[in-house]
Amino acid sequence: MRRALLGLALVLAGAGARAQPAPEGQAAPESQAGAAARPASGPAAPVPSACTDFAWSLMREEAWFAAPGLAQVASGDAVRAEMPGAVLALKPDAEVAFPVSPSKVPPPGSYGGVLRFPAPIQPGIYQVTLSDEAWIDVSQDGQTTRPPMAHTLNPACPTLRKSLRYQFGTAPVIIEISGAKRDTIKIAIAPVE
Rank of each mutant, 00 (worst) to 15 (best):
A74Q: 11
A171H: 11
D132S: 06
S103C: 07
Q143V: 10
A150D: 13
A156T: 00
I175M: 15
L115S: 03
N154W: 01
V105G: 04
A71H: 05
A97K: 14
A71D: 08
T144K: 14
V87T: 15
V128T: 01
W135H: 14
A89I: 05
G85Y: 04
R116K: 14
G112E: 03
L153H: 03
P118K: 06
R116L: 08
R165M: 11
L153C: 02
D137S: 10
T145F: 04
A81N: 07
P123Y: 08
P123L: 05
A78S: 15
S110T: 15
G113I: 00
V79F: 04
E95W: 07
G124F: 12
P172G: 06
T144E: 11
I121A: 15
I125D: 14
A89G: 11
G76E: 06
D137Y: 07
M149H: 05
P148A: 10
E95A: 15
T129C: 12
M83D: 15
N154Q: 12
P102Q: 11
P155L: 09
Q72S: 11
V138A: 08
A78W: 09
F117K: 04
I125M: 06
E82K: 13
S163R: 01
W135M: 05
P108F: 08
V114R: 02
A74K: 08
K91E: 14
A119T: 00
Q72V: 14
W135F: 09
L160I: 10
Y166Q: 08
T129D: 03
R146E: 11
A89K: 13
I175G: 04
G124D: 08
M83L: 13
R146F: 05
Q122W: 09
S101P: 14
I121L: 15
A119M: 05
